[in-house]
Design a protein around this nucleic acid. Structure first.
Length: 903
RNA sequence: GAGCGGUUAGCUCAGUUGGUUAGAGCGCUUGCUUGACAUGCAAGAGGUCGGUGGUUCAAAUCCACUACCGCUCACCA
């Protein structure tokens, strides 16, 4: 079996994904899970059916897949529920734009036809999203895919609406809500984004009815004066004490307004007198309640001025009305001036239009009781955010919670399950569609025209997708879920609300862990957005580098709570690594050929083997810990360092000694060990690079596919359901690892010298290694002379490398040599005649200075009485040892420097 | 106005409970078509960890203050 020279993910990713699907491995009931273990469950944050996946989804879903694959390999019954969200406003907007594009309108089409059209669009996007997720390798259980408008989920929505209504947690009323005239609907407070705009503060006055003077007011929105129903001043304001109870005449209209006293008014701002428009300002609304004022709605739903204003302003858009009101005030002599004024104004989170406070009949959820439960659950420690600090966002929102406006004046969504009777005027709230009034039995009923906020279905997602309100087996088995992976921007839109709904209806939190992903930005640190055109299409990344490169790179860069800056070429990190893996496998398979594979338990491990298993073991621990703590970057770095630095750069290199020898047994042994190590590495790395590891796994010879550490040979057909490596104390070989590190230091020291004096790579060198008497790795180095020779390019004859133990070496034996000093050893290379002596001297000098500095630091530490008294014994001993070693090295360096200068 | 985060190598970032010589990837320099990989190999340069003060035998790490950048929340007309 031979692999292609180049790693070419496009060749196998599709095939591998199909194999997984055909094997039913994405299902928790695949038959490969340990049914005794707790299920590991994630519900996908459902993407909107409006669009296609962007890189934020790429990140989010890649990390979910990493977790899912890890826990699946640990043997947990593992379920990742995929699905999509109908995204009321966004989707309706998209379809309306389409419809308008062909000269029609939703009104012309009628509700039924328009919804049918939207369903078609939604289906298209659902298909696209599913294909995209499959392309990035998401191992979701597609048999459980859900959509928020599915029949089952719609039943859940109805059930929740009715139950909340019955519990008096849902009410209907005429209140001031956030209105987006462009979307033509009310929005919840959370859907309004505040941003600063440049405006003006307009000053004008209202004359007193009794002609005793005038009151000056200021506003950023002069057109709202048409809805003013009073003027308010602070009761403590001496300037206006005589005015309270009097009346003013509202210019441009024929209305008379009372002057009231209200604590809300800030005496220090402006003139201290406030025009009050209860129909168009939240604060004024409150004032209006306190003083029993009329609320005038001066707007039509489309954002133009209503019939409540004088004729000449009716039908004008707000901006136009403002111009005219100002002009008229000027003309009639009420205007006093204006100044620039920047202020925060609400914008629609979907279309960015200005939000108007708008008086209308809406449905609301009473949030206080729900929020209290959600806070209590957090206080009981039932929820853990990663990183922790997002808990502030969660608790702050819950503590400041306001009622949730859930009705939307749209056609795309869950129709509100309420019917109004035209005969008796009663309304009926019902789980089932009705044809007669619940109160009087009249057939003269009509259903509420509005639909529910999309989040009113999303907040049920963790249990509605599992079948609730039915008592399904899935619900029993897989709720509560384990982990939620999502972005911080929807902590209160979605996360907090899911927690509230779960607590309210299932009396449990919907998940324990909440991993908040990083934000994906471009290389300049700007948020990726359509309008900037700086987005990266995850599918393009997959086409260019492969899905593994996408997943691995994102995980590798996902430090908790840190935004990720990405350019297209960033994904080279993952693709280079995947290529490395590919080529390591290629090397093995080339050398394995038809060789006999020796089972691992029949191989007696040698020191270098014990070293690599020690490193592997350490990595397994690091990966398992990292996964459990959601430190994806650490997991990525751990496998990267092990596979590339330890396995490829050292172990594979050493293996060449045996593989290129002419001893068949040695060759079998080396190849078999490589195979076992590679096989386990594939299991270790599979969650981060599922495709390439599976592809390689499938090409490995039929050794027991899941031969775990104990040699338990459980046959599995695919890596995806193989067992994840477990750490083991038997594999720990700390002493060997220390000794091997000494070998690495020696090899590096010799290579550095070779490189600095530009000795040609092909040139064999000879050298003498003097090890200090106490040096614990002395014998180890002697035993591995062959390896050292291979890695340093030393002469392979017996006297290529000579070892000497002791404090000194006969000066005669050092003739013609240049030394490098290491920790516990020196190597003397016989290359004097080949090198630039001055350069060597400079090198020694530099080395010497570095050591002297370190020595100085160490000495001053040990001279300090405080250190000796208070620092731990171990720390002090270590420091002493270090000082001693540095002193030895300094002495040697000085000696070598001197000898160089002599010659 | 309140809260949160960031500031460590040219760039992007790790650094868990304070303890050797502060790490990685990319970039850069030098040398290599060495029989897995030039998406590679070997070697190297590069940082007084934003600033000030403090705690401590010992601070990138803990505390206080401060500067700059960013985010979120908030009804000042």
């Amino acid at each position: 079996m031979e692999l292609e020279k180049r790693f070419n993910p496009a060749e196998f990713e599709g095939r591998v994904y199909q194999m997984w699907q055909e094997g039913n491995y994405f299902s928790p009931e695949s038959g490969y899970a340990d049914t005794g273990k707790t299920p590991f469950v994630i519900v996908i944050p459902p993407p909107n059916v409006t669009g296609v996946l962007h890189l934020g989804h790429g990140l989010n879903n890649s990390l979910q897949d990493v977790l899912i694959r890890f826990y699946r390999m640990l043997g947990h019954p593992t379920l990742w529920v995929p699905g999509t969200d109908h995204a009321g406003i966004a989707t309706q907007n998209v379809v309306e734009r389409m419809v308008r594009g062909r000269g029609s309108s939703r009104e012309q089409m009628g509700r039924e036809a328009f919804v049918a059209e939207t369903e078609r669009v939604a289906l298209d996007h659902k298909t696209t999203i599913r294909r995209q997720l499959q392309k990035i390798g998401a191992s979701c259980d597609w048999s459980r895919e859900r959509f928020t408008l599915d029949e089952g989920l719609s039943r859940a929505v109805r059930e929740v609406f009715v139950q909340l209504y019955e519990r008096n947690l849902i009410y209907r009323g005429n209140y001031l809500v956030n209105w987006c005239a462009s979307c033509g609907t009310a929005l919840s407070d959370d859907e309004v984004e505040h941003s600063e705009i440049q405006g003006a503060l307009y000053h004008y006055f209202y004359p007193m009815v009794d002609a005793s003077g005038r009151i000056e007011v200021a506003t950023t929105r002069p057109e709202t004066m048409l809805g003013d129903t009073c003027v308010a001043v602070n009761p403590k304001d001496t300037r206006y004490q005589g005015c309270v109870g009097k009346e003013v005449r509202l210019p441009l209209t024929d209305r008379i307004l009372p002057i009231v006293a209200d604590d809300y008014v800030d005496m220090t701002f402006g003139t201290g007198a406030v025009k009050v428009t209860p129909g168009h300002d939240a604060n004024d609304y409150e004032i209006g309640l306190r003083h029993n004022l009329e609320r005038i709605n001066i707007l039509n739903p489309d954002g133009t001025l209503s019939d409540a204003v004088p004729k000449r302003y009716r039908g004008l858009p707000v901006v136009e009305a403002r111009r005219r009101v100002v002009a008229d005030l000027k003309e009639q002599g009420y205007f006093l001036g204006q100044e620039d004024h920047n202020h925060q104004v609400g914008h629609c989170y979907r279309c960015n239009s200005l939000i108007e406070p708008f008086l209308s009949e809406q449905w609301f959820v009473r949030m206080q009781p729900l929020a209290e439960k959600a806070l209590a659950a957090w206080e009981r420690g039932e929820l853990l955010f990663y990183p922790r600090r997002w808990e502030n966002t969660y608790t702050h929102w819950l503590r400041e919670i306001r009622d949730w406006c859930i009705s939307r004046q749209l056609w795309w969504g869950h129709r509100i399950p309420v019917w109004y009777c035209s005969d008796c005027g009663q309304m009926t709230v019902s789980r089932e569609d009705i044809s007669a009034c619940g109160a009087c039995g009249s057939a003269g009923i009509r259903q509420d025209e509005d639909v529910l906020d999309t989040w009113f279905s999303s907040w049920l997602w963790p249990f509605s997708t599992l079948g609730w309100p039915e008592e399904t087996a899935d619900l029993e088995q897989y709720f509560p879920t384990t982990t939620l992976v999502t972005g911080y921007d929807i902590i209160f839109f979605w996360v907090a609300r899911m927690i509230m709904a779960s607590l309210e209806f299932l009396e449990e939190v919907p998940f324990r862990d909440i991993y908040i992903t990083s934000l994906v930005r471009d290389k300049q640190g700007r948020k990726m957005s359509k309008s900037l055109g700086n987005g990266i299409d995850p599918l393009e990344v997959v086409d260019e580098y492969g899905a593994d490169a996408l997943k691995f790179t994102l995980a590798f860069l996902s430090a908790q709570g840190q935004d990720i800056l990405l350019g297209h070429d960033t994904f080279a990190i993952g693709s280079k690594f995947a290529n490395k893996i590919w080529n390591a496998a290629r090397y093995l398979l080339m050398n394995l050929g038809e060789r006999r594979v020796v089972p691992l338990d029949e191989i007696e491990l040698r020191e270098t083997d014990r070293w690599i298993y020690h490193r592997l073991n350490y990595t397994v621990e690091r990966v398992q810990t990292g996964m459990r703590e959601y430190r994806f970057d650490d997991v990525g770095h751990a496998v990267y360092e092990f596979f590339w630095n330890d396995f490829c750069d050292w172990y594979i290199e050493l293996s060449k000694l045996q593989l290129y020898s002419d001893d068949e047994t040695e060759q079998d042994r080396a190849a078999s060990l490589l195979l076992h190590l590679l096989e386990e590495s594939m299991r270790l790395m599979h969650p981060l690079l599922p495709f390439v590891t599976e592809e390689i796994y499938q090409k490995l010879p039929a050794l027991p596919r899941c031969n775990d550490r104990d040699g338990n040979a459980e046959e599995v057909p695919a890596l995806i359901v193989a067992r994840f490596p477990e750490p083991s104390v038997e594999r720990e070989a700390t002493e060997t690892a220390t000794q091997f590190a000494a070998l690495q230091e020696l090899v590096s020291a010799v290579r550095t010298l070779r490189s600095e004096f530009t000795l040609p790579p092909a040139m064999k060198v000879r050298f003498l290694v003097r090890t200090e008497p106490r040096f614990s790795a002395a014998e180890f180095l002697e035993r591995h002379k062959g390896i050292i020779a291979l890695l340093t390019g030393a002469d392979e004859s017996d006297d290529g490398i000579v070892f000497v133990r002791g404090d000194t070496v006969d000066s005669g034996r050092l003739e013609g040599s240049v030394a490098v000093v290491g920790d516990g050893f020196e190597a003397h290379l016989y290359v004097r005649e080949l090198i630039d002596v001055d350069a060597a001297a400079r090198r020694f000098q530099k080395e010497l200075e570095k050591h002297e500095k370190a020595f100085e630091r160490s000495r001053s530490k040990l001279d300090s009485p405080g250190f000796l008294e208070k620092a731990g014994a171990e720390v002090v001993a270590k420091e002493r040892e270090r000082k001693r070693e540095l002193a030895t090295q300094i002495a040697k360096l000085q000696q070598h420097l001197a000898s160089l200068k002599v010659n």
